[in-house]
Design a binder for these strands. Structure first.
Lengths: 165, 165
DNA sequence: TCTAACTGCTTGCAAATCGCAACTGGTTTC
DNA sequence: GAAACCAGTTGCGATTTGCAAGCAGTTAGA
């Protein structure tokens, strides 16, 4: 990551942080998979991220203020990674990116369901999800109503079980 | 670009095409700068793309079906690149990415105005813009009303002239 | 208490990609 | 006829990637 900017264009500035093959994947797993530990991100990575790449990306996202890192009180060696507000505000981008992938590439059925729900839910669902993430990652008060994350996860598990059968 | 997919996740599939430092920059210039020729993309590139990288990305976007290439009848050597429908459907992503960059990074004032207009206009403006792009790139009938591209370009030129003074 | 598994990384290395600069063969303009 | 312009290509050093192995310490179970 260069320390100077290629241009002051807002799209370029966003891409200078997010425009690579792994950064958004890591954030996706933290967001939708609620993975908060290094090993968790490493071992459950669908795309098989390498440990050195993961370490590098976490360091970068940390220094750019998209995530934060804290000690896990339950384990001396564990670190908890949390989404910061800028990362939470990527939800609409994830939703559109998922919808685009769904429409224009051949997604597998089980992995498609969450993108579908997110697309159907629209900005109102995204806002609810963002509030939930602020609770989970930033310590904001727990929002009322059914958990969006649980809804997404349950739908995914259901389709996975169904397609496996 | 690997010929196999890392996973069937729609977000990952989108990132396998768009997740690098240049692809979206090239598409942005074609979309918002209406640049359709190689030299045009090369010489007016704000970020200074290299010719070999540009050639590679155009080839890739072509093979992935995001853009098309045609001879320019006015000049034997000129090729006209056009956005295909999948690329036109990236408009909401550009809008959100710009809005995110605007909010979380330090964009320069002149380059910020288009992202601002796109954000304020919301999905209805995006849809109008997409219809306009279908006219400009796919030969669809010209939509009625004021051109969104002209609106964006004029606003940009105005702010640029103003900040230069 | 011993041991195996787990913790967040780091290191070494080969391969791929990037970025820069120069260059190519052809076309068009003046 | 010369200069500018056209879409790229080529060569090369520097950076980044991906893979495998390893590390110092911590924890859980027998």
């Amino acid at each position: 990551m260069p320390d100077h900017h290629r241009s002051g264009c807002p799209i370029n500035l966003a891409l200078e942080i997010l425009g690579d093959r792994w950064s958004l994947i890591v954030l996706r797993d933290m967001t939708f998979g609620n993975r908060r530990h290094f090993r968790d991100l490493l071992n459950h990575s669908l795309e098989g991220i390498a440990s050195n790449i993961l370490a590098d990306r976490l360091k970068r996202l940390l220094s750019e203020g998209l995530i934060t890192k804290a000690d896990d009180p339950s384990h001396k060696q564990k670190a908890i990674y949390s989404l910061a507000e800028p990362a939470i505000q990527l939800i609409p981008i994830f939703a559109h990116l998922g919808a685009w992938g769904l429409r224009h590439r051949a997604a597998t059925e089980d992995l498609a369901i969450r993108a579908q729900i997110l697309q159907d839910g629209g900005p109102k669902l995204w806002a609810r999800f963002m509030d939930e993430l602020r609770h989970l990652h930033l310590g904001a008060p727990k929002p009322k109503g059914k958990s969006v994350l649980a809804e997404l996860t349950e739908a995914y598990e259901a389709v996975k079980a169904q397609t496996a059968a």
